[in-house]
């Protein structure tokens, strides 16, 4: 079962991180990723650029309209996302709790949809 881990934070957290602590978090993040690679639960992880870099696209009457900024203006935004493939929701929650950023912001766990299905 694949899960998306969305790591949320805000400007206060992402913008004012003491260098030493930042290095520690990076080290822990790399260690966790290495562990998940070794266990075969790793699919991918991406850091997301700052909100000021966001563009939002809408297609109206066949014409794309591009606006600056995120679709939803919120104090909390996505700093990075991980995709894992693991045995159960319990395991996904266990991994989420080990994401170092969970200590400062929030980690949202979302199951990913699959094409497989059972007729009822």
């Amino acid at each position: 079962m694949k899960y998306l881990l969305l790591i949320y934070g805000n400007e206060e957290i992402f913008g004012s991180f003491p260098e030493e602590e930042f290095q520690k978090v990076i080290g822990e993040t790399n260690a966790l990723q290495a562990e998940l690679r070794a266990s075969g639960e790793w699919i991918g992880a991406y850091g997301v650029a700052d909100q000021v870099m966001a563009k939002t696209v809408r297609l109206r009457d066949g014409v794309p309209v591009v606006t600056d900024g995120p679709y939803l203006e919120a104090k909390e935004y996505i700093g990075s996302l991980d995709i894992i493939d693991c045995e159960s929701l319990e395991r996904a929650l266990e991994i989420a709790a080990r994401v170092p950023w969970a200590r400062y912001g929030e980690v949202e766990v979302r199951p990913l949809m699959a094409e497989a299905g059972t007729e009822m």
Partner: peptide, 15 residues
């Protein structure tokens, strides 16, 4: 078949 990257599956098998 399991829609995961080959490296992920290789790790699963090796583990």
């Amino acid at each position: 078949a399991f829609l995961v990257p080959e490296a992920t599956m290789a790790q699963r098998i090796s583990r």
